[in-house]
């Protein structure tokens, strides 16, 4: 479809990075400044509000830990999927991407469970600013999980038809990014305030 991207390679000055990967890096660069901005806002406020520690006690770090493990595992499965795709093993790549999607869905289920209990206990987004930030940051992250799942599912369909196998790597990069964001959010929201 994209005539340009697949054009004969020696048509252009030697490209440095595969075009798709480069596009993904730019996407991540844009995303990093968005999350970066959000997290810096949180940190600035946190600095001025030591009393937030009292609110942070009520986060459920057990589920936080479980979700961290779930996401890390899903990063592993997507790496393996990339590896399989790289070696041309479409079936295996597809299976591993399926695992990744399941793990992502598990993450969302845990998160939903957690939200519902927090809301039931009265910790709503308007309870105080800590909770506003909690829902804002984790909610933004959850949206990225959803986007990632859609992207993986789309690529998976292509892999089934043995098309665009290189895209496994690109969604993989994205998925790692979503994972890394969580690695920042988890200690900042669940752990650090308690000590």
């Amino acid at each position: 479809m994209s005539t340009a991207a697949t054009a004969t390679l020696d048509r252009y000055e030697s490209p440095s990075v595969a075009t798709g990967r480069m596009g993904m890096w730019w996407v991540l660069a844009s995303e990093i400044v968005i999350f970066g901005g959000a997290v810096v806002c949180y940190l600035l406020y946190r600095w001025h509000h030591p009393e937030w520690a009292e609110s942070a006690v009520h986060t459920n770090e057990l589920i936080g830990v479980i979700n961290t493990v779930v996401l890390l595992t899903s990063s592993l499965t997507i790496v393996l999927a990339h590896d399989a795709a790289h070696h041309g093993d479409a079936a295996r790549a597809k299976r591993l991407m399926g695992f990744t999607i399941l793990l992502g869905l598990a993450f969302l289920c845990f998160k939903a469970y957690e939200y519902s209990h927090e809301v039931a206990a009265g910790f709503t987004p308007v309870k105080n600013l800590f909770w506003s930030f909690y829902y804002f940051l984790t909610g933004l992250h959850a949206l990225h999980i959803v986007a990632g799942l859609i992207a993986i599912a789309t690529v998976m369909r292509g892999v089934g038809r043995r098309e665009n196998m290189q895209r496994v790597e690109y969604v993989g990069i994205y998925w790692h990014f979503v994972d890394v964001v969580w690695i920042f959010l988890f200690p900042l929201l669940y752990l650090a305030p308690k000590f």
Binding site: W26, A29, S30, E31, I32, I34, F35, G36, G37, V40
Partner: peptide, 10 residues
């Protein structure tokens, strides 16, 4: 790209 991110968050 590098300036708009924080505003999107805001």
């Amino acid at each position: 790209m590098f300036s708009v991110g924080p505003l999107i968050a805001g």
